[in-house]
Design a protein around this nucleic acid. Structure first.
Lengths: 209, 209
DNA sequence: TATTCTTTACTGAACGATCGGTAAGTTAGC
DNA sequence: GCTAACTTACCGATCGTTCAGTAAAGAATA
């Protein structure tokens, strides 16, 4: 692969360096689209709007993607895909339920931070189309897997049993998912520090001991 | 356009006054609108859509409200107004910082539950228009007031100091605000039980002691 | 090397559908 | 008859999408 080229040109994909007047390849289009969707909402973002941000025309976008919904599909797939991977990692499968829960929650925070705009979009989806409903269904399954871990950790005696288990899980999710609303990567708080803080507050609470 | 509500024309049915072929008064229109906005998003909800839900025509809605944005304005005003009231109650002004914090958080949960659809809409606003930005600004001020309470409770020695104060506050908000995404009034969990669970998890964490 | 063909990556204009909103006429109850 | 509460018909703007055309560059042919 040739990497000595000017960055504004030839962002070629596979084996051959073809003609490319500008670098509007799919990853770039997707990145701009996800940013715009998060800023103004999916419905409020028009294809003309995206074209302006890309410095190109509306119809040029259609060379790279099938349509507006396709951009949403690709973005949601990326987000939910990365989250699902966490459940397949070894740390999510061995150890006590409490250990596995901590591992999965850490992994979720990691994905939230590393793919922040994509996960942000996923968490705002309300099920308006088949694509959104499909992403929502996969998210529901992911949530359910963590919910089972909470139940197990409870049965183990690791977690408190005086609060409804379902409520506990929901509040836990609420806390973690809210990260996308305020966390700025590259700021003063590192990803690792954030993960530690989240687990501390979640498991030990706000009260001083 | 005047800031105040109370349009002198709306003949409310309370004292039984004017002709009313159907019960499409402002509160009913607003209720249907907020429900629709929450289900499909503000942008994805058309005036025609609202008219169908009301069993009337699009233009009939314009007799009761100035336009689509006006519906949003009224809904957001109600939500943020109720939240702001909590800060003015006596319990929010006397006692230790920890006590005031618990009072305000309880109050926030109470408003969230009692005006669930309105607060849901408020929490989903992203600042796309002047109206949204104005609501967002008031919400930011409300959040900041609670943030100061957390700082005070910390200085008092009531709250832990080993986690960043700003992060603590954000996670606390994330947890509480997430309620609008899953709580169903009239279900098995009462408002009071929910409030208690939230405070327990927030202050004491998930771990069994 | 010179010419032609093919593919890539667009441009610009236009499409039908739908949007929020309005104008003007109509009906029900006092 | 007056007015509140509509209805029907329509407006211009904008939406996502399509389509014919085309410039640029590599590949094939001579």
């Amino acid at each position: 692969m040739s990497e000595s080229n000017a960055p504004s040109r030839t962002a070629h994909k596979g084996g051959n360096g073809r003609a490319q007047r500008d670098a509007y390849d799919l990853p770039r289009v997707l990145e701009i689209a996800v940013t715009a969707f998060n800023e103004h909402g999916y419905d409020a973002t028009s294809m003309g709007n995206l074209a302006d941000r890309l410095g190109t025309s509306k119809s040029a976008i259609y060379y790279h993607v099938a349509g507006k919904e396709d951009l949403l599909r690709l973005a949601l797939e990326r987000a939910i895909g990365e989250l699902e991977k966490v459940l397949d990692e070894p740390g999510a499968k061995s150890g006590s339920a409490a250990e596995r829960l901590r591992f999965v929650l850490s992994g979720a925070v990691r994905v939230l931070v590393d793919d922040l705009p994509f996960v942000t979009l996923l968490l705002r989806v309300r099920g308006n189309s088949d694509i959104e409903r499909s992403a929502l269904e996969r998210r529901r399954r992911f949530d359910h897997a963590i919910s089972r871990l909470v139940d197990e950790a409870r049965d183990e005696g690791s977690l408190r049993a005086d609060v409804d288990a379902a409520v506990t899980t929901r509040l836990l999710f609420g806390m973690i998912n809210s990260i996308v609303e305020w966390y700025k990567p590259g700021g003063s708080i590192t990803r690792e520090q954030l993960t530690e803080d989240v687990l501390t507050v979640a498991f030990d609470g706000l009260t001083k001991r």
